[in-house]
Every structure is written in C-alpha cells, then in structure tokens.
Amino acid sequence: MTTFKLIINGKTLKGEITIEAVDAAEAEKIFKQYANDNGIDGEWTYDDATKTFTVTE
C-alpha cells in the first residue's frame, strides 16, 4: 500500500485527506468519490513525485 494525499481547494471546503491505496488509480477513484459526495466539482491535478492529488474549484 502507498500513501496518497488529496488537497482540497474548494469554494466552501478546504483541507487535506490522506489515504492508503494500492496505486494512484485506486486513490483517484476514492478521492473523486469523496469529492462527489461532498459536492466538490473542480479541476484535478496529480503529482506522482509527491503522490498528491489536488482539486480546485
């Protein structure tokens, strides 16, 4: 398992979430479901060097 981080730069929600996932594809699926569940819709980026996803509304 690898640790992945999501940085949320939303209009109403900001913060960071860290999860353990098998790979970046699994982490992205989990993070996008979390964002969808919380009404966050924005532009996604991923930095493989730091294993960090960012979503900006």
Rank of each mutant, 00 (worst) to 15 (best):
M1C: 04
M1P: 15
M1D: 09
M1G: 14
M1T: 10
T2W: 13
T2L: 11
T2A: 13
T2S: 07
T3F: 15
T3V: 09
T3P: 10
T3M: 12
T3W: 11
F4D: 00
F4C: 01
F4Y: 11
F4I: 01
F4K: 00
F4P: 00
K5P: 00
K5D: 05
K5N: 02
K5E: 02
L6D: 00
L6E: 00
L6I: 04
L6Q: 00
L6K: 00
I7W: 15
I7G: 03
I7Y: 12
I7T: 05
I7C: 02
I7K: 14
I7L: 05
I8Q: 08
I8T: 06
I8F: 15
I8P: 01
I8K: 01
I8L: 10
I8V: 13
N9E: 06
N9V: 11
N9T: 13
N9L: 15
N9P: 03
N9F: 14
G10D: 11
G10R: 06
G10K: 07
G10W: 14
G10F: 11
G10Y: 13
G10S: 09
G10E: 01
G10Q: 08
K11Q: 04
K11I: 04
K11D: 10
K11E: 06
K11F: 06
K11L: 08
K11W: 05
K11R: 04
K11N: 12
T12R: 02
T12A: 11
T12H: 15
T12L: 10
T12M: 03
L13Y: 13
L13I: 03
L13A: 14
L13R: 06
L13T: 14
L13M: 12
L13K: 06
K14I: 07
K14E: 02
K14C: 04
K14P: 06
G15F: 12
G15P: 15
G15L: 14
G15H: 10
E16V: 06
E16M: 10
E16W: 08
E16H: 13
E16I: 11
E16N: 15
E16A: 11
E16D: 03
E16F: 03
E16L: 09
E16C: 03
E16P: 07
I17S: 08
I17R: 04
I17A: 07
I17P: 02
I17F: 10
I17G: 04
I17E: 07
I17C: 01
T18Y: 12
T18C: 02
T18P: 03
T18M: 08
T18E: 15
T18I: 07
I19C: 01
I19V: 15
I19G: 13
I19Y: 12
I19N: 14
E20T: 05
E20F: 03
E20C: 03
E20L: 04
E20K: 01
E20Q: 06
E20W: 04
A21D: 06
A21F: 03
A21Y: 02
A21I: 10
A21N: 14
A21K: 08
A21Q: 02
V22T: 07
V22N: 11
V22M: 08
V22F: 10
D23P: 01
D23I: 09
D23H: 05
D23Y: 12
D23M: 03
D23Q: 06
D23N: 14
A24M: 07
A24W: 15
A24Q: 12
A24I: 10
A24P: 14
A24T: 11
A24H: 12
A24C: 02
A24G: 09
A24R: 12
A25V: 12
A25Y: 15
A25L: 13
A25T: 08
A25N: 12
E26Q: 02
E26C: 02
E26K: 10
E26F: 10
E26I: 08
E26R: 02
A27S: 06
A27D: 00
A27R: 00
A27K: 00
A27N: 00
A27W: 00
E28K: 06
E28D: 07
E28H: 12
E28M: 13
E28W: 12
E28V: 14
E28Q: 08
K29V: 13
K29T: 06
K29C: 02
K29Q: 07
K29I: 06
K29L: 08
K29F: 03
I30W: 13
I30M: 06
I30Y: 10
I30C: 03
I30G: 04
I30S: 08
I30T: 08
I30F: 15
F31D: 00
F31I: 12
F31K: 00
F31P: 00
F31T: 03
F31W: 13
K32F: 09
K32W: 09
K32T: 08
K32V: 04
Q33S: 13
Q33H: 12
Q33M: 14
Q33P: 04
Q33A: 12
Q33Y: 10
Q33R: 10
Q33K: 13
Y34I: 10
Y34Q: 02
Y34E: 03
A35T: 15
A35G: 07
A35K: 05
A35W: 03
A35L: 10
N36E: 09
N36Y: 14
N36Q: 12
N36S: 06
N36L: 14
N36C: 03
D37I: 13
D37C: 03
D37S: 15
D37F: 14
D37W: 15
D37N: 15
D37A: 14
N38T: 08
N38Y: 13
N38M: 07
N38G: 04
N38A: 10
N38F: 08
G39K: 07
G39E: 11
G39N: 11
G39T: 12
G39Y: 12
G39A: 08
G39S: 08
G39I: 13
I40N: 12
I40L: 13
I40Y: 14
D41W: 06
D41I: 10
D41C: 07
G42W: 10
G42N: 04
G42A: 07
G42D: 02
G42M: 03
G42E: 02
G42K: 01
G42I: 11
E43C: 03
E43M: 10
E43F: 03
E43S: 07
E43N: 12
E43D: 08
E43R: 15
E43T: 13
E43W: 06
E43K: 09
E43Y: 09
W44A: 01
W44F: 08
W44H: 01
W44I: 15
W44G: 00
W44N: 00
T45I: 07
T45K: 11
T45W: 10
T45P: 00
T45V: 10
Y46Q: 05
Y46G: 00
Y46W: 06
D47R: 12
D47Y: 10
D47W: 09
D47K: 13
D48N: 06
D48Y: 05
D48C: 14
D48I: 05
D48P: 07
D48K: 03
D48L: 07
D48S: 13
D48M: 09
A49Y: 02
A49S: 14
A49E: 12
A49I: 09
A49T: 08
A49G: 07
A49H: 14
A49R: 03
A49V: 09
T50I: 05
T50E: 05
T50P: 04
T50K: 10
K51V: 09
K51W: 08
K51E: 02
K51P: 01
K51G: 04
K51L: 07
K51Q: 09
K51H: 03
T52G: 05
T52C: 01
T52R: 11
F53V: 01
F53R: 00
F53T: 02
F53S: 01
F53P: 00
F53Q: 00
T54M: 14
T54S: 08
T54C: 02
T54L: 09
T54Q: 04
T54G: 06
V55H: 02
V55G: 01
V55L: 09
V55K: 00
V55N: 02
V55S: 04
V55Y: 09
T56G: 04
T56E: 12
T56H: 10
T56W: 05
T56K: 12
T56S: 13
T56M: 08
T56F: 07
T56Y: 10
E57M: 11
E57V: 04
E57F: 14
E57N: 14
E57H: 14
E57K: 10
E57L: 11
E57D: 08
E57C: 04
